[in-house]
């Protein structure tokens, strides 16, 4: 969690405020603006999309990416014992990828 502030430092103030709202409670009810940002991030096509794979049901999940139609899931070397932590991690990965692609705020 300590690295979080750094991860947000490159964001414009409006997006940063939304991101802070998400990180505070990833599975809570979100503001309309944050919800819009999440719809955008979650609408990505399946190929390459981050997902979790259950390792121990209800207790441990592994980060993975979907291969897309007809292709296997690609397992990554990151594990979570808490779903909210996984949500935060993937949210930041997606925000970073979006920043790299030069997209603006929702």
């Amino acid at each position: 969690m300590a690295a979080m502030a750094d991860d947000l430092s490159g964001l414009d103030p409006a997006t940063r405020a939304l991101a802070e709202g998400f990180l505070a409670d990833p599975l809570g009810e979100h503001s309309p603006n944050l919800q819009r940002l999440l719809y955008t991030l979650r609408s990505a096509p399946a190929e390459g999309k981050h997902v979790l794979v259950e390792e121990v049901p209800g207790r441990r999940w592994r980060l993975a990416r979907l291969g897309g139609r007809g292709r296997p899931v690609v397992l990554l070397d990151e594990r979570f014992d808490d779903l909210a932590a996984a949500e935060r991690r993937v949210f930041l990965l997606r925000l970073a990828a979006r920043g790299a692609a030069g997209e603006g705020a929702a």
Binding site: Y39, R42, S43, K49, V51, E54, P57, V73
Partner: peptide, 11 residues
């Protein structure tokens, strides 16, 4: 994932 409102967890 949009309908689920959370990350997909595959079995």
């Amino acid at each position: 994932e949009v309908l689920a409102g959370r990350l997909l967890a595959l079995t």
